[in-house]
């Protein structure tokens, strides 16, 4: 299941709903991304007062559904979930939740890791940070995110 929403989510309730009534799940792995209060801007560690996420409605949902389907195809998952927020958030707030459940932990761990790595380089979201001193700066994509996603690239697929 995927959801793109402005409002916050209740981690415990979301995970409980994912496994509700299921007795075939042996392991559930989740990752939550949060807004940090510091970020490197122009090479300097800078205090952040808020972050605003913009996205491409329509394409976002399409890409998230495809990312989830890819995880389902690669691992024997019993359930999976992607929730991504957009709009304005302050430090400490939850941005994203990915979760994967399987009969055994290996698939749950790997699929969860895959979901967030793949999402970071493929889902059309952009972050702009508001600094403590009143500036606004678009977050630059990081090579390390590309490297993280590349680990999951299959040899039979061309890199984008």
């Amino acid at each position: 299941m995927i959801r793109v929403q402005r409002e916050d989510f209740d981690l415990g309730a979301e995970l409980a709903a994912l496994t509700q009534g299921r007795h075939d799940i042996g392991g559930l792995c989740s990752f939550v991304g949060l807004v940090r209060d510091m970020a490197p801007i122009d090479g300097e560690t800078t205090g952040i007062s808020a972050m605003t996420l913009e996205h491409y409605p329509g394409m976002t949902e399409k890409m998230l559904a495809r990312i989830e389907a890819e995880a389902q195809e690669r691992w024997p998952l019993s359930a999976s979930l992607i929730i991504h927020r957009y709009g304005r958030m302050e430090p400490g707030e939850q941005i994203v939740l990915v979760a994967a459940a399987s009969a055994h932990r290996e698939a749950a761990f790997e699929a969860c890791h895959f979901l967030i790595d793949w999402l970071k380089t493929k889902a059309p979201f952009w972050k702009i940070e508001s600094t403590d001193d009143g500036r606004e700066a678009w977050v630059a994509a990081r090579d390390s995110d590309d490297d993280a996603a590349a680990r999951w690239q299959r040899s039979d697929e061309a890199a984008e």
Binding site: Y56, I116, K120, F125, W126, E160
Partner: peptide, 29 residues
């Protein structure tokens, strides 16, 4: 670039009626 909400390459076709999006590398998650 995305054409009709699918990532596109420089040589991919565009035609009247298409929705073409331009954006920087994504930074979600």
């Amino acid at each position: 670039v995305a054409v009709n909400q699918e990532y596109a390459k420089p040589g991919d076709r565009v035609k009247p009626g298409d929705e073409v999006a331009f954006f920087p590398p994504v930074t979600g998650g």
